[in-house]
Design a binder for these strands. Structure first.
Lengths: 202, 202
DNA sequence: ACGCTGCCTTGACACTGTCAAGACACTTTG
DNA sequence: CAAAGTGTCTTGACAGTGTCAAGGCAGCGT
């Protein structure tokens, strides 16, 4: 057994799958088509992934890597103001969601990927940590408090998943939705205002 | 042509599809299986729906009806306090999402349903109006302002979609997430506090 | 030199959604 | 009343899907 530096076909298949996903969306992503795109027979992927879910999970790991880079870049591109940094992180999130709908679907929605796979956790927790760091200036009183992080995470994910992002294409409401910045500003206000100390988290 | 009071097989098929979805999730929901469950041949549904997307869309309309009832019931079951009413609405949302994962997936996630179908809009906009009414006491200054509604809608949807709900089953984080009430309380605080007048919506 | 183990191909299976053609009952029309 | 037509459902076929079993074939270790 030589390990052969972790066969290259595996990565070729992941690349082929990502290309198909980008071109034709989730419907175009097929195990057989991925194999054909990679230039191998239809049963070849079975030796590198545990069926279709295995391929999707591996692709999801790559997607989380790109995702973490995107929100990190959004945060660093912002100025030094804490709110701007948090907003930049979220806008990196929204930009990624509308620019890479396929990857977004893969990471958070597709029921076929095996979330909980150990290959996913490093990148996904890295993304979470980037968001958490951007939240830290607003949650000064308790290091173990995760309320704000969870709120921001839920808010931006819901905003993206419901298609409110005006830069996205799949609009379906007639009234134009408010920009995300307005939502975030109101959410953070409760933490910023020292006159309204937080209630116990019940 | 007699219209035959809108053939009953159509509803039978929708019921069969909902039963399959409830039993085995999205993977078990198949056009042929739905036909078999309804006791007809595999091509019968084609005369009542425009393929599989048509069936899913019709099922989604039913799901939105149930959903609107659920959040309405959650709101009415709460006391007269405006915050409790808003919280009740959201908890109706969360309860529905964890109790009817299949329907939730159908309504908001599945790319196969034809959102924008006119059969969907009555029930979905009814649900939106129920939430909007619960938000009204907190947005007194401008009737056309949709910031709070959008924020609450995004927050609760993201919370449900990311699986933070502790009553749900598909947990994947190790730290236990904060209850939704804490998130909502903080979000609403900015609107409740008269000492911190809202900034212009950017 | 032999055998073995990883990698890949070929072929088959059950299953999916969709289409075309026909059977049958019922209404409408001549 | 008979003929034509229409809506509803069945049967049969097709291409495409994921998955499994069997075999070929190179490269390695003994």
């Amino acid at each position: 057994m030589v390990m052969s530096e972790t066969s290259t076909l595996r990565d070729t298949l992941i690349d082929a799958g990502l290309a198909l996903l980008d071109e034709g969306g989730m419907a175009a992503l097929t195990l057989r088509r991925t194999a054909a795109r990679a230039g191998v027979s239809h049963a070849a992927p079975a030796h590198h992934f545990d069926g279709l879910p295995g391929l999707l999970t591996a692709m999801s790991a790559r997607a989380f890597h790109i995702f973490a880079d995107a929100i990190f870049a959004g945060r660093e591109a912002a100025g030094p103001d804490p709110f701007d940094r948090l907003l930049g992180t979220c806008q990196g999130y929204l930009t990624f969601a509308s620019a890479h709908k396929g990857l977004f679907h893969l990471m958070f929605i597709s029921p076929e990927v095996n979330r909980g796979d150990p290959a996913l956790t490093p990148h996904s927790s890295r993304a979470y940590m980037i968001l958490r760091e951007a939240c830290l200036p607003f949650a000064p009183h308790n290091a173990t408090d995760t309320v704000l992080e969870t709120a921001v995470w839920s808010l931006v994910h819901g905003y993206a998943a419901l298609g409110f992002d005006p830069t996205g294409l799949t609009r379906r409401t007639f009234v134009i939705p408010p920009p995300f910045e307005a939502l975030l500003r109101e959410l953070v206000k409760a933490w910023q205002n020292p006159l309204a100390p937080r209630t116990d988290t019940r």
